[in-house]
Design a protein around this nucleic acid. Structure first.
Lengths: 223, 223
DNA sequence: ACACTCGTTGCACGACGTGCAGCCACTTTC
DNA sequence: GAAAGTGGCTGCACGTCGTGCAACGAGTGT
């Protein structure tokens, strides 16, 4: 038979594994969008993806897991991108740019992922799953922010200030991460709510900018 | 037999219902604390509370629900208390005072509730459940905040300004609520992490004040 | 005392999620 | 290129979850 041209990379077996995983994920999203995730059984998803029930659970531990897979990896990308931003940018600036970079990925706003995102707003079971991802993302972002705060402060005021501001028992970075992610979540939510049919990336950028601007300015409007 | 002195209130049947509900809840928390919630079955909880399995599900739709019941009602109290704060206080001030009032309730920091709160930080399944409550709380707080912003602005600048700032498509209040609750969550989390044995309400107050102060001051430390 | 309401209970059933063992396509080694 | 191995797919069994339904009986209003 034909021989693999020594691609050297993942290997055929691994490719097949990823293919089935992707097939299962896509089937899960498609059925969940069509019927609502509550009305879809794992068995039907497996059937649609032409795998056994057991195989489904070999890749995902629940329907929610399957639908969430894409969003989860994007969340990780955001943090990675944030780490990559130059130190010259302020924290909120860096976060904004990181978000924009992730949004500019080809598939980020594709129909498939968009449909999955819309699902997250409705179903309680998906909302629930979100919290686990959210806290992990918070911790990762907090760690990244701590480094950024630390090095930035060190450059300007020396190591002592860095210790105070950057680490500070990890108190402030954690707060910052939680608050900032909450803002992004609301921005995304707003955008999903307003754009019924036509996905307008420009509006999403505006929403994000708006939210982050409010954060920078302080949140006690009376004063 | 003896006759009820016409208390007029809840009625005996209603009281019994609440009693079983509370017994089930307490049993759930007790067992979850002792063995970890993953290792506790609903059947064992029902057994410990001396009710049937079916009765458990008549009151709660899952273990998580039972453990969460207390925290959920406290969340609602916070919003109610926030609504009750005088208009003279700034939003963050009002929220702070509301939080303090809720904390001052006799049972708020009791051993039982405290143990339940500690559980919420660990188990993924409880973390998940948290998100549903969080979004509901966000919506409620956003609505309350919108009113507050609206009336405050109306008193000072007239109705036009109120419409802009208060409603504004509900954009800002929603953001404010999400961000503020994220901050409170982190404050509570921090406090639970640091106080291993001795529950020190003073420290919690300090954590809350610290978090809210950061919010008021803006969250872009570089600038 | 009578009829009525409604919380509790048992039963049945579909769905969920995991451990285990066999099968076989792919992979590595010689 | 054949033999030994690795690892993904599959079926099966089992315990748990959560809900609909009907019966029972304690509490309630007339």
């Amino acid at each position: 038979m034909s021989q693999v041209p020594a691609g050297e990379g993942p290997g055929l077996r691994e490719l097949k594994k990823l293919a089935t995983r992707e097939a299962v994920r896509a089937a899960a999203v498609r059925l969940a969008v069509r019927d609502g995730i509550e009305n879809v059984t794992v068995e039907r998803i497996a059937e649609a993806a032409e795998v056994s029930l057991r195989t489904f659970f070999n890749h995902f531990s629940s329907k929610e897991d399957a639908v969430f897979a894409a969003a989860e990896s994007r969340a990780a990308e955001l943090v990675a991108e944030f780490r990559r931003r130059p130190g010259g940018e302020s924290p909120l600036q860096a976060l904004r740019e990181a978000a924009m970079v992730v949004l500019d990925r080809d598939d980020a706003l594709g129909r498939d992922h968009l449909a999955a995102l819309r699902l997250l707003r409705r179903a309680p079971s998906l909302l629930a799953r979100q919290m686990v991802v959210l806290t992990e993302q918070e911790d990762a972002l907090a760690a990244a922010a701590a480094e950024r705060f630390g090095t930035a402060a060190a450059e300007r005021f020396g190591t002592a200030a860095a210790e105070r501001l950057g680490t500070d028992d990890g108190r402030f970075p954690q707060l910052w991460a939680a608050v900032v992610l909450a803002a992004l979540r609301i921005a995304l939510d707003r955008w999903l709510a307003e754009s019924t049919a036509a996905p307008d990336p420009g509006r999403l950028r505006a929403e994000i900018d708006d939210a982050l601007t409010h954060l920078a300015g302080g949140l006690d409007p009376r004063t």
